[in-house]
Simulated assay, not measured.
Amino acid sequence: MSERFFLYDDTVETKTRFVSFMNDNNRFDLAIIQSDRYYGKVIVLNIQGGRFAIIGPDDLQEEGYIEHAFDMNEEDAAELSAFLSELV
């Protein structure tokens, strides 16, 4: 068996916010993780959908990014983007 080669193995302090809200079509159950990594971006986990993305203000401006990252329709992605724009 070959020796394991780590690129990094760090433990960092994080701040995690759990939030749940609804729009007309969907329920959003999110975990939002902030740390010193990822150049000020946050990790957003869609708990029910099982998907996550590293998101910053630039990502929210990119057309179709939220739809693709979280596999959701345009209306739900707009709702999620509006919420996330208050955080990042």
Rank of each mutant, 00 (worst) to 15 (best):
Y38H: 13
D76P: 02
I32L: 05
D59Q: 14
R27M: 08
G50T: 14
E62R: 15
F21H: 07
D36A: 09
A78S: 12
Y39Q: 12
Y65H: 12
S2D: 10
G56P: 03
T14E: 02
R17W: 08
R4F: 09
E86G: 07
N46C: 08
L7I: 07
F6M: 07
E75I: 12
V19A: 02
G49K: 04
H68N: 11
Y8L: 06
T11C: 02
N25I: 04
L80V: 03
I47S: 02
E63D: 10
G64N: 07
L87S: 01
F21D: 02
E13G: 04
S2H: 14
Q34T: 15
N25E: 07
H68Y: 11
I32G: 00
I33M: 08
L30C: 02
Y39G: 09
D10Y: 12
S20T: 14
F52H: 15
M72C: 03
N23I: 05
Y38W: 14
E63R: 15
G40F: 11
R51T: 09
D36F: 06
A77K: 03
H68M: 05
V88T: 13
T11K: 12
S2P: 15
D58H: 12
Y8D: 08
L87M: 10
G40K: 12
K41A: 09
N73E: 07
Y39P: 01
F28S: 01
S2E: 13
R27I: 09
N46A: 12
S85Q: 11
E79V: 14
M22W: 06
L30R: 01
K41F: 07
D58E: 09
Q34L: 03
V44N: 00
L84Y: 02
I55M: 03
V88N: 02
F52D: 06
D29H: 12
V44W: 00
M1I: 08
I66T: 05
M22K: 15
Y8P: 01
A53G: 09
F83P: 03
V19F: 08
N26P: 00
I54N: 06
Y39R: 14
V44P: 00
S81A: 10
E75R: 15
F52Q: 13
E67V: 11
R51G: 00
L7V: 11
D58V: 13
E3R: 15
G56D: 05
L84C: 07
S85A: 07
L87A: 02
E13Q: 13
S20R: 14
I32Q: 00
N73V: 11
R51P: 00
G40P: 12
E13P: 11
F70M: 01
S35Q: 06
E62A: 11
I55D: 00
F18C: 03
D9K: 15
F28G: 01
E79H: 13
G56Y: 05
F28K: 03
A69C: 06
V42E: 00
E63M: 08
V12A: 02
K41R: 15
F5Q: 13
N46I: 02
G49T: 05
G50K: 15
A53Q: 05
I33H: 06
V42F: 05
K41I: 03
L60H: 09
R17P: 00
E74R: 15
T16N: 07
V44Q: 00
S20G: 07
H68F: 07
R17H: 09
S81N: 10
E67K: 06
S2V: 10
Y65I: 04
